[in-house]
Structure formats: C-alpha cells, structure tokens
Amino acid sequence: MLQLLNLIVKFKDYAALTLLCIISLALISIGDVSKIGGYRAFVVGTIGWLEEAFAWVPNPDALKTENRAVRELNLYLSSELMKSRQALTENKKLREMLDFKQGIDYNLVSAEVIGKSTIELREYITINKGKKDRIARGMSVRTDAGLTGIVVVVEDNYSLVETLNNRQVKISAKVDRTGIDGILVWGGSTYFNMMNIPRSFDVKVGDELMTSNYSRKYPPGIPIGKVVNVEEDKSSLFHKISVEPFVSFNTLEQVFIIQYISDPERLKLIQRMEERLRLLKK
C-alpha cells in the first residue's frame, strides 16, 4: 500500500492528468452528447473498426442470441408461408366458386360451414345464413362441385343442412349421357348406390349423374357424382351401380344455398295423391 502511494506520489503529474481527464470525459458523457458530433463519430468509427478487427474471435453469447433470433424469424416466416398457402388455396377455391356462380341460373346465397353434427345417426352441417338472408326450409344446398344437401331447420342467422350422406335421403337422379332415371341412396361409406336401373339399360363406368326433373326436393340438373362401378347381378333384374359423389362431405367449407323451392301446387298435388292411396289401403 505504501509502495503504491509512493508510486502515485512519484508520478503524481500523470496520475492527476489521468484522473482529471477521466473526470472530464465522464462529465462530457453525461451531458448532451448530441452536440459533440465529431467525438461521437470518432467513437462510433473506432468501435466499428475494433469490432471489425476482432470479428474473427467467436463470441458464444452473440452466436446464441443470433441463433435464437434466426430461429424466431424462421418460425415467423414459416407461419407467414403457411398463411400465404392457405390464402392461395382459398383464393383459388373462391375464384372457382365465383366463376360457377356467374354461370348458374338460380339465385344463390353463399354461406360458410361453421359446424358439423350428427343427430340420431343423421349428418348435418350448420351454415352462417338464415331467415335474414331469405333462406327457407327445403332449399337445396350445393358447392361448385355438386349437390350437398337440403336446408331442414332455419333460424334468423343460421341454418341446419341435412347432407346427402344419410341413409334416409333418397335422390331422384338421372344419367346425363342416356337420361336414364333412378333413385340414389347412400351406401354407408364413400359411395352411393343407384337403384331401380334395369339390367337392360345402358349405364357405364364414368357416366355422370345429376338431379332429375322428377325430383320433388331438388332443382333439376345439379351434378351429383359419377358411376365408378357397374355390377351385373344375375340373380337380380337390376344393375348394382356405385356412384362416387362429386362433393367431399368431410372437407366442406363454403356452400351455396339455391333459393329454389319446388312448385307448391305440384307438391300439393302429390300430397293429395298420397293421401288418397293411403285411404284406399285402409
């Protein structure tokens, strides 16, 4: 300690100079440094030069920080990429739907599928349009691909749609190529079965089916699906025809409600006929 003091006394000039310079520079640094542009430029330049000179020395902490930042950026960009892809797909789908909407005669109301439910083994979808959008019970629902179902319950802002993949649903369909009519029912899996087509009638794999003019529920001419298999059953008089629907019921997102209800007079006529038959049976 004494030696240190002796040393300081011996070099008191330099010690005083160093101390006072440090105090002065400290005072400068706590002042308004924006005034001293030259000094700041010099300091920044010197630090930059030193950093460049020692850039080759690995800094684990800086590398760790940089790595974390890059990872975060990567995550953000991946998320953005995913969003872009989704937007692209959605855009493409909407464009297709728009084109389709322009080429159709019926008045269509577009809606989004907001829910799916199964009630008593029946499949339903919920859409975000209701009475306020002039949606009514009995209106058919379709996508740009084809027939999807029918509106069964309507509230002010929402509606429930019964999809075609229900065993109770029967669709009057016809083969587009030959005009042969039949009844289409869901087979319980991916395919539908076309009933009541005699073996002598011309039906081939690849034939497309659409709603028939005889249908009481659906407007005519809506695509339904295509024939994927025709079996010749010798024990039966009819073909066993499997039909693949155009609509993928598991990936429904956007649908159109066709503002069309069958002619009430026609429906009344059929009801009267059915009642008369029931009375005759009794």
Binding site: C21, I23, S24, L25, L27, I28, G31, D32, K35, I36
Partner: peptide, 18 residues
C-alpha cells in the same frame, strides 16, 4: 458549454505547458 470539454482540453494544455 458542454461541461467537461474545456476542463479536458485545458488539463491537457496545462500538462503540455508544465
């Protein structure tokens, strides 16, 4: 003036003259 600048420069001037 910015406090410290004259102190710094005049300290050095004093050292040189001394």
């Amino acid at each position: 003036d910015l406090v410290g600048i004259n102190a710094f420069t005049k300290t050095i001037a004093g050292f040189i003259a001394g």
